[in-house]
Design a protein around this nucleic acid. Structure first.
Lengths: 246, 246
DNA sequence: TCTCATCATATTGTCGACAATCAAAGGTGA
DNA sequence: TCACCTTTGATTGTCGACAATATGATGAGA
């Protein structure tokens, strides 16, 4: 499949990955992680070691180490002797991820309701405005990312690094879920919901904030199309293109 | 500090780590992870690459990879140019871990209340009995391990691999927390609590199971001594030994 | 024309050697 | 006797080369 390979490489080439990220291993990890979280790298994209090595200007060993860690985080899938690719979540993965997220976000929002300060409020408000702008500009990837950032900001308010780390993984995986299962032409519309959650938090009403958060997450999930495994699409496309010939 | 080094090495040598684990990387990972979860390796123990290499009979590169993954899981701490050691959690880490655990376990127990079947019940009952036996035998490490397994069984009942994975990490870190902060001569006494949780689950009473679970986790936390950073103890010991001389 | 076996290429897996760094021991001077 | 500098040994960090494996192409046979 030379074609899909090339597209994947192209995808790696232009965006997200800067010309010369330092030799710092963590930096490389963050770069790739961010590229996936921002949907610059779509599920299924192969991540060839030699290619990454040239992009980042480091030895293969280091790339390999980074890929190992990304695989542990669940955003990259490592197949023996087949290499690494951006994880393509199954419908069950998607569902499980949502369930776990509800549990974690519920806890976070309840803690945050007691911790939120003026500085936090400013950050959250700014985020909501940025997302609003992204929607206005039609930047859907930016919207998904900013939406995730809103939730990460909430996690940071709690001061609990463990919850924060867990949520980070869940949100990154959700970016993969969304780009795999999104219904075309169905924009996410979480703007008012984020705002309502913020208000409840500022009012110190943990129960209401929790209710709003769970409803919000439910809406995001409902907006997806989890039933079909999606992408035996390739075959369907081919059949559609060449009705009965060759 | 040659002495603490030697004890650490000895600790590595005899227990937990079998003579010849296969060259399978995952197997090595699991071996070390298990040894930490079972408290066979105590917090602060240095994990020298060359030493591990000889024990497992593989190349250093592989050991290095495993240590990277363990560090990501938070059970091993990697200091640049200083190597790896079993993570010694701070009091804050301990607290954060408990908070996160309450969130995750609450969700798990609520889901499990709707999913539990006869086979699950048998496994859980067997676990409770095994823990009872371990207590009777005075095998505290075994008790901690079996107690963790009880919670892992609950997670498995939910069928949610993501929640299961998250809990696994939290439980492993809790083993580190316990061996770092346990009050001497204060045995954990969760026997009846596990039993009560199981009963509530079998009755399908999610709310009661949740309440019991949260109380149970709270009890475990209360049993610890989180206030002192623990171990400037070394100095105290020295001062005690040599009252005013030299 | 189709199927199957064989081969060539590209990619990953594994290893050992060397360089860089750190911690402790030993030695020098005040 | 103490403090400080230098040296030595041990440990980790990094890399390049080679081996193993999978994928796609080629060609022979039915």
């Amino acid at each position: 499949m030379p074609q899909s390979q090339d597209t994947a490489d192209a995808e790696l080439g232009w965006i997200g990955i800067p010309e010369d990220a330092g030799p710092d291993e963590n930096a490389i990890y963050e770069q790739i992680h961010l590229a996936i979280a921002r949907q610059d790298l779509s599920p299924g994209t192969r991540l060839r070691e030699d290619h990454l090595r040239r992009i980042f200007g480091v030895s293969r060993a280091r790339i390999r180490n980074v890929l190992t860690r990304l695989a542990y985080a669940g955003v990259v899938t490592l197949e023996p002797n087949r290499g690494a690719s951006v994880t393509k979540p199954s419908p069950k993965d998607a569902h499980d991820n949502f369930v776990a997220r509800r549990a974690v976000e519920d806890a976070i929002v309840r803690i945050a309701a007691g911790h939120i300060g003026p500085a936090d409020r400013a950050l959250l408000t700014a985020n909501i405005e940025a997302e609003s702008k992204a929607r206005h500009d039609g930047d859907t990837a930016g919207m998904v990312w900013l939406s995730g950032e809103f939730h990460m900001l909430l996690a940071r308010i709690t001061g609990n690094r463990i919850l924060e780390g867990i949520l980070r993984e869940l949100i990154t995986r959700e970016a993969l879920v969304i780009s795999t299962f999104e219904r075309p032409g169905r924009p996410s519309c979480s703007h008012d919901e984020h705002h309502a959650i913020l208000e409840a938090l500022c009012a110190g009403d943990a129960d209401r904030a929790s209710r709003l958060m769970l409803g919000h997450l439910g809406n995001v999930e409902d907006r997806l199309d989890l039933d079909p495994p999606k992408k035996p699409a390739d075959l369907a496309e081919i059949f559609g293109r060449h009705p009965t010939r060759v």
